[in-house]
Design a binder for these strands. Structure first.
Lengths: 239, 239
DNA sequence: ACCTGAACACCGTTCAAGT
DNA sequence: ACCTGAACACCGTTCAAGT
């Protein structure tokens, strides 16, 4: 694979040229390539495994080379978030189904962040202004407008709903990084036993509800759906 | 202050004893003292300033000494969260006012975490099992039970509502660490101008709503209240 | 302009040695 | 049992030097 067409469709480099890439077809460093590599490292090694050295390694270079394209780790995280946001597909608004469409959008955020563990952390505490995020946000606003909500309510909801999905995904990511699914189930079982064994006179509710409090933890989707239902119900009440 | 009564009310150490504290009255190291110092460092230097060396420094010792009492930074964070949780005051349930009482509890979580920037991060992704958190949770469950909600709904709500407060506080903390209030206002103003200047044909909603989307950011409390209202309205609909 | 090797600064944690 | 100095491992970032 010595000759790959470059992203800009330049003519292929003839073999006698001195300007051939020094490594076998490896693309030159670029912001996009760095973001690609970083997402790959994140998916493979998790949040704790994502560092500038690992990203540089995946690109066959040293960490210092990244700083010619990216100001630092924080900017890199921002670019990764925007890449993922840009991949979101938001349907055209259907006023009849606005609540379901809004829910689908929030679910998509949740799933996107779950797919890249730890990335949710980078989305908390930033106002996304990249092209991908802006495009997704604009179409999300379209869904809320189709719901006939007042402008002030839309502005709040456009902030709160993604925050919910991000926070929930972040919490799940933390668990997933710390333990496997089986270990998680065992952990929840231990919590259940601990709750149930607490002195019932001092903690009457936790002890009596130990089962309900820990039952659904292996299936976090149901709890996510419940919270989403709470939010959208509360939103619809504002019409 | 050479003679302070020890936590266990041991008799004072006579001045001719060789077992007097080597430093002027400084208490011996303990988990509680370490948690105290860590909260002090956190409040003064923020999340980025909180490290084992700084905590040890505040106690007049070296970082290695902490590991005799605390297994590591993660456990220390857990202890700090539990300390703060234990300081929460939850009223006796009043079925007539259950919605307002639930809101007050969520507000208290939010404020507690705002008071200790970065601590919210430690609460995301853990099931709190310390004495302080368990006590607060039990009394919170009491408020939800007084609301006449089904057990399954209570179990979900007891997880979702604190998650909301924690996530919101975390987001605010990230901003607060990154910039002062004035810088934040200026930042939001720039975002407003950026949104308003986007091409209106491709981003019709963001451009037309630029004002509403950025108006309230200097006053995050209103948005927090709005999200809380959404959640509790959705919760009450489950009765 | 882009890339690189080497180094700096910082920090969580360990360990052998002290009392 | 508790504490400590010193060191190790790791990682974000910088910088002077290369092409």
């Amino acid at each position: 694979m010595a000759f790959v067409s470059s992203p800009r469709d330049e003519p292929p480099v003839p073999p006698w040229s001195k300007r051939r890439p020094r490594d076998s077809g490896r693309p030159r460093l670029s912001r996009d390539a760095i973001v690609d590599a970083a997402l790959g490292v994140l998916d493979a090694a998790g949040y704790d495994g994502l560092n500038m050295r690992a990203v540089a390694d995946a690109l066959g270079t040293g960490p210092a080379s990244l700083y010619a394209h990216v100001s630092g780790k924080e900017e890199l995280f921002g670019l990764m978030v925007d890449r993922v946001a840009g991949e979101m597909v938001v349907p055209d608004p259907d006023p009849e189904r606005w609540q379901e469409q809004v829910k689908d959008f929030v679910r998509a955020i949740y799933r996107n962040f779950l797919a890249h563990p730890g990335l949710a952390r980078a989305n908390l505490g930033t106002i996304p202004t990249g092209p991908g995020a802006v495009a997704a946000m604009d179409r999300f606003l379209g869904l809320l407008i189709a719901g006939g909500l007042p402008e002030r309510v839309i502005a709040y909801a456009a902030d709160i709903l993604p925050l919910y999905a991000t926070a929930y995904a972040f919490e799940q990511s933390v668990f997933a990084e710390r333990m496997t699914e089986e270990e998680g189930a065992e952990y929840v079982r231990q919590i259940h036993d601990y709750f149930a064994a607490l002195p019932a006179d001092r903690f009457p509710h936790i002890t009596s509800m130990a089962g309900a409090l820990t039952r659904d933890d292996p299936q976090p989707e149901a709890r996510f759906e419940f919270g989403l239902e709470m939010l959208v119900t509360g939103l619809a009440a504002q019409r």
